[in-house]
Design a protein around this nucleic acid. Structure first.
Lengths: 203, 203
DNA sequence: GTCTATACTAGGATAGAC
DNA sequence: GTCTATCCTAGTATAGAC
């Protein structure tokens, strides 16, 4: 195996283990073992355990194209297509989380252990969501279409449904013992609840 | 200091540190240091670090009166007072979480590290919530008051708003930088969104 | 009930041979 | 590029004195 291949392999083993046991809970010994090499090899490719963690950060930051958030709903936002705005955001999030459940766990470990990944994610993914959506909501309130609830509170309700469902499906209720449902159905259901919940009564 | 007092003190220091750094991330040395005693004293009161963790479990299990969940909303459920049912549950949860933010962190560490606390909490707090509420919701659907969405999905939306808000206020957004709001306002807002979202249109 | 000293283990990291 | 052997530190736990 070439150097780069080996490096890549170790990186992926580390991602898997870190996401499972957290940074502290994962030993370099275990990483080496799972990769089928000696511990010395791990330290040949990554100067320290901490550097390995940062390599994962870079990798994940590049992989998840968080660069241009919401470009793909700008059309729906422009057209004031309420359903499409919320449905697409939620469906996209659920799909991404499901494709990469490791990332969810990595993120939560990171948040609790106080590593940078969590901050990175909040700044590049959560904060923009709050900004874009609360701006859209207050606009629709001025249009007289939504009731005058605190826009940020609405966003929190929305993000809450989304994240909690993702965490449930990817971490605890993997086989759908409590609730088995496709991402499309979930996205549709949540969007309906939210929109009916905040729309101005027409009567 | 008497034996019991000292034991209690060590227990509380441990709760604080475990909730902050997790089980693995907390050293017995650190516990001893914060308690102002030698490490040997910690092991005099608790045979092992693991026993200390289980003592915390017992303590927390007794402290949070999860024994009779929802006895205090049974009146509202009987009277089919929709607002009261959801408002009281959510307000109660937000207040409890806020009074004991340590518990939230402890719980999350536990969930990720795969300790029993998480299972305990899910079985004694989350599962009953799902059961009681989805039963109530399907009843109100038969009454023709709620739309025919999957009851479990509705509960998930509800629990999602609740938990996500708690996590935000107790863990990340403590000073309300993103959203500053009282528990009463939040509970009212979420309840309004949810109820309007699932009520049958009267027109 | 408390301490100091210490045994033992595990985990991170390196040296040096092949 | 890979291994074995090893060092060092930190962490759990115990012994024994006061």
């Amino acid at each position: 195996m070439t150097g780069d291949e080996r490096r890549d392999q170790i990186l992926h083993v580390a991602i898997k283990l870190f996401s499972q046991y957290g940074f502290r809970g994962t030993t370099t010994k275990k990483i080496a073992e799972e990769a089928g090499v000696s511990e010395a090899m791990v330290f040949r490719h990554f100067a320290s355990k901490s550097e390995l963690y940062h390599a994962i950060l870079d990798y994940k930051a590049c992989e998840s194209g968080n660069a241009m958030p919401f470009a793909w709903v700008s059309e729906a936002i422009k057209n004031k297509n309420d359903f499409e705005v919320f449905y697409q955001i939620i469906l996209n999030a659920l799909n991404r989380h499901q494709q990469d459940p490791e990332f969810m766990r990595l993120l939560m470990h990171s948040a609790l252990e106080g590593h940078e990944l969590a901050d990175m994610f909040i700044n590049e993914s959560i904060v923009p969501t709050y900004e874009v959506l609360s701006f859209y909501i207050s606009q629709r309130q001025r249009d007289g279409m939504f009731r005058n609830l605190n826009p940020k509170l609405i966003v929190r309700a929305f993000v809450g449904m989304m994240i909690h469902h993702s965490i449930n499906t990817t971490l605890w209720d993997k086989n759908g013992r409590i609730l088995k449902i496709t991402n499309e159905e979930a996205a549709r259901g949540f969007t309906e609840i939210l929109l009916n919940g905040i729309k101005k009564n027409t009567d």
